[in-house]
Design a protein around this nucleic acid. Structure first.
Lengths: 236, 236
DNA sequence: CGCTCGGTTGATGCACATCAAAGGCTGTGG
DNA sequence: CCACAGCCTTTGATGTGCATCAACCGAGCG
């Protein structure tokens, strides 16, 4: 048995938890991960670059990544924050000569299970329910984009509130920590605004005791208050 | 033979042209359209409402629709403009109890082939290449959303230029007509801006002879000039 | 000890939204 | 056949949310 396969077997417990593999036996999961290898990424390490030929897809095992694209002015715009259990780049592989449409960068040290394109186009393809699950995940991601687009004319505070609550609800947490941990810059890049504006809004919330920040960890102390910001464009 | 099936057979020539059915025989296409019915929609007629239970999906046969969602302020935000050959609502059907995430409204009189959800979950599911094609179409749609998101900080003129050129390239046309025909309001709702601003930008282009508008039909006279607006955030 | 990185604050300006008003065009009902 | 209501477009005046620029601070790090 090759070392890679061993490593994947070691990660099997994690994999079995992920929604994409619900209802699959350990053997089936191993088969679906054929040819895979686990990659450990340090903070800010790049998993793949936009424009690279897409020879693989994969699943985030732990930590988080940001998927971003540079704008014409050279600033990055963040499209998505895949976290543990999320599929990355699966749905573009159906194209004849697929190319990554975004750059993936690790946020904090993260682990990623890299699977060859062929595995998707053969083993995965043979399981319609699996492909349907991929489609479902894609649909939720699309829905996030829609949610953000609806806010295009909304005040920035509302956008920040929706972003924080979306991430918070995606990976709930007793202590109210937003996952993944974000810098204000990343929030700004995700919303298409400037760091300073985000800071002004969030320090306001901090002063009012709605949130608390400690070392990138954003803690939501008063979810109701943030939700209020998100649902009304309330101004005082 | 039931009248519905006859109607679909009559539309078979159209269907066979669509990329989703490339490589399929007429019999196969008929089988994939089982239980379908052709719906004729008048201008502004609603095909389905956001929040309705999704019991069907379908293909635009002719004309175009707009997929929109109301914002909190009650204004509509347009997410997409499906035109002839485009799939609508296919990829949300994999969810347990799917609900339309947007409202679909006809732009001009249009025809739509309505197919029951079950057809997707059984006949279509059995054809992996077909599902992959659905995924591919979904990926291009996602990519459009990404393209727009990248422009979030760009000047409005750039957004308008990109929108027009995207639609133009999607359904090319000797005369340079943008398809589907759009009102300035629809452009604004699609970009999250105001009608007046869009008008100011476009009448400017009209005066410079880049475009021409006649009865909702927008004609691009100087694609290079519009592209220039789209690629540089050039200001004079 | 200089460096980078994240956060913060204040001053200034501009690209747009918003409000207001008006004209053309189409369909519709009295 | 006219009146009226909607819809689309246009133009001008006014206001403002947020980007931008410019500094500065503390913390971690090689």
């Amino acid at each position: 048995m090759r070392p890679q396969t061993e490593a994947i077997e070691a990660a099997l417990n994690e994999l079995a938890e992920f929604s994409i593999f619900q209802g699959k036996s350990r053997e089936q999961i191993l088969a679906l991960c054929e040819g895979g290898q686990i990659v450990a990424c340090a903070h800010r390490e790049c998993l793949f670059q936009m424009g690279d030929e897409a020879t693989f897809f994969g699943i985030v095992l732990s930590g988080a990544f940001k998927l971003s694209r540079p704008s014409l002015e050279g600033e990055d715009v963040i499209m998505h924050f895949p976290t543990a259990g999320d599929l990355v780049a699966a749905f573009i592989l159906t194209q004849p000569k697929p190319v990554f449409p975004v750059t993936a960068t690790a946020m904090g040290s993260s682990r990623f299970l890299k699977l060859p394109k062929e595995t998707y186009l053969t083993s995965w393809k043979a399981h319609p329910e699996l492909i349907f699950k991929v489609q479902e995940m894609l649909a939720t991601r699309m829905s996030i984009l829609h949610d953000q687009k609806v806010l295009s004319k909304a005040p920035l505070s509302q956008k920040v509130a929706v972003l924080l609550m979306t991430l918070f609800k995606k990976n709930p947490n007793d202590l109210g920590f937003v996952n993944p941990p974000l810098t204000r810059k990343e929030i700004a890049e995700s919303l298409g605004s400037s760091v300073e504006s985000v800071i002004r809004i969030m320090s306001d919330w901090s002063k009012q005791g709605f949130i608390r920040t400690e070392d990138l960890q954003i803690q939501i102390l008063r979810p109701e208050k943030i939700l209020e910001q998100a649902t009304f464009s309330a101004k005082s």
